[in-house]
Write a protein that binds this DNA or RNA. Structure first.
Lengths: 336, 336
DNA sequence: CTGTGTCGTGCAAACGTTTGCAAAAAGACG
DNA sequence: CGTCTTTTTGCAAACGTTTGCACGACACAG
């Protein structure tokens, strides 16, 4: 057969030959050293280091049935909410010797499904963040894949959720106390669980405090859409806006500013996810949880089941906190 | 041996058995359909679709010597410069049926080396963005790996560079024409080629136009460092600042604002990379290239050599453009 | 008909590991 | 020193593909 480069990468077999022992022994020196004589392990490791041996994960995964890798599937890498999660997942996985695939579905549920499907055989499992897929499609995929969801709540599937409801309730309460009687929720991506859950939290809290809550839906939840929404918002008389995330809050901030509406004097703004809160002027009041922990939890759910056939359904909840900034102030009369 | 689930994923062998043909034929139906009778191909594909067959990339990569995957290694996923590149690389790779590994080195050259080393056997090649490694270490790695660098210029290695020098020269010229005689360059990450090259471009252009150029070095090139730098900057009498990137430009903008220095009335600011230019107030004047194309070029260099043993050294250059915003204005006398 | 191609398919080896089982070596004990 | 354990090692099969080679079938020319 093909012999690409005769002196290719060192393999277990070559090391075994050089040391005049069996390949199994070399293999075990790395995977089950406690089974071997310490001297043997030392000799193997020394030689391996010398020749620069790196275990071939493909062969490893092939025989053991599952690769030493996990996948991340998400709607849009460029959304600042995701990169910190990715980083944290990758670091956690790396500690266990796993590599990480990344796949961006461009906000397309069909593509998302395809990516999970294609990634399936080469990974131990997949962390699917802010999935846009239909629940039944996810459940079907979960029959043949280890899937852990982040910010998507589906019964019988493993998931880690950031619960923003308490902090949103707190924000609404504070706004009410400051004299705001008319709030607006500026919504994010349609198919997003986070959006549905935040929207509901604002409406519920508004109802409890007897204030008006308008809801502005957007398609993608982008900065530009939020910017544009300010046009409609100024006309309603709302004195405070809660945005789906910080990117949109930022869009509101700048959109209002462009229309001569000052924050927080004329309008109060609350963001979410703390992706750029301290970088705006004024600094955003926002709502956020510890994403590092969210990511680690999700990754560990996946890793806990290495070897086991199926990941048992788990539900992890992370509670977000209200982080006061300078974008909230007392209500004032506004042109309506 | 281990038989985890008797009726596991469909394989080529099972399909072959079901259709009463040889596994080779099934394999060829996917990889070399032109060798087969069209009817055979159709039958195989139909059956494969029905049972939900997905080729096992591990086995595939094992026998063919290289995996159907590439890796991305970079210093910090959370830096907004990278995600668009990642997305573009992943999409391009996906079109060729390749998956993408992501690895974040946390700005640590040692870790970067380790990640490339570990990823090596499971990928066809690695795109190393803004590498922090020493040149000789990279060159040594390149002996045993297909590596394409982005924003790192090393002879005899494949690389794609964003050339900001012409646009920086143009910016300096414009600033000079507006009466600025004292510029500052606020530098980014120490080990970054982009930083070295931008710094040099500012200094060279300043010299040509006979203006003073101060250089402020930072360790990481962060927003906060830029913010802090404004303290020192206001004392020097510089009337314009060119920042390593938009994140730092943003830090300058807000840092100056906090000190009562207005942009562009009191200070002009030029950013780089166009990661958030339109989202600041005023909008940043910035310098940027088409990252999509950069990413695609790098990916294609890697893909062009599938099967070939080694990727030939290539040098691609993308020229960045000056994008006028509202953060540059005429020079005014400033307290010095 | 026989010889020569061409096309479609099958055989079997190989890729680099892991791992169940069994054999060999080394200690323990009387 | 035998015998019995325990520790350490080796053998060989298996994972799911790809691919060099060869064989059979069929077509067409001579």
């Amino acid at each position: 057969m093909r012999r690409p480069d005769p002196s290719g990468r060192p393999t277990i077999v070559k090391i075994a030959a050089a040391l005049d022992i069996s390949p199994s022994t070399v293999s075990r020196a790395f995977t089950r050293p406690e089974l071997l004589h310490p001297d043997t392990v030392a000799a193997v490791k020394a030689h391996a280091l010398e020749v620069g041996y790196v275990p071939n994960q493909l062969a490893r995964g092939l025989v053991s049935g599952r690769a030493n890798a996990i996948g991340i599937v998400l709607p849009d890498i460029a959304n600042p909410f995701f990169p910190p999660l990715i980083r944290s997942i990758q670091h956690t996985a790396h500690e266990s010797g796993l590599s990480v695939f990344i796949a961006d579905s461009a906000d397309d549920a069909g593509r998302e499904q395809e990516l999970i499907h294609d990634l399936g055989p080469q990974v131990h499992g997949i962390i699917n963040i802010s999935s846009r897929m239909a629940s039944r499609d996810l459940q079907r995929l979960a029959e043949s894949h280890n899937i852990v969801l982040i910010n998507r709540d589906i019964a019988d599937m493993s998931r880690v959720l950031v619960d923003t409801a308490p902090a949103i309730a707190q924000a609404v309460e504070q706004l009410t106390a400051l004299g705001h009687h008319h709030l607006a929720y500026v919504g994010g991506p349609k198919a997003s669980w986070s959006n549905a859950s935040r929207s509901k939290a604002v409406i519920d809290a508004g109802r409890r405090h007897g204030v008006i809550v308008d809801t502005y839906d957007t398609r993608l939840g982008s900065y530009d859409e939020a910017w544009e929404a300010t046009h409609a918002l100024v006309a309603t008389g709302a004195t405070a806006a809660i945005a789906f995330d910080d990117v949109m809050a930022h869009g509101l901030l700048n959109g209002f500013a462009a229309r001569g509406v000052r924050t927080p004097e004329d309008i109060s703004i609350v963001g979410c996810d703390d992706t750029l809160a301290t970088k705006t002027q004024p600094e955003l009041t926002t709502i956020a949880a510890n994403l590092d922990e969210t990511a680690r939890t999700a990754t560990n759910i996946l890793l806990a089941h290495r070897g086991r056939s199926r990941v048992a359904a788990t539900r992890g909840v992370q509670t977000a906190q209200l982080l006061p900034g300078g974008s909230v102030g007392p209500a004032t009369a506004v042109a309506r």
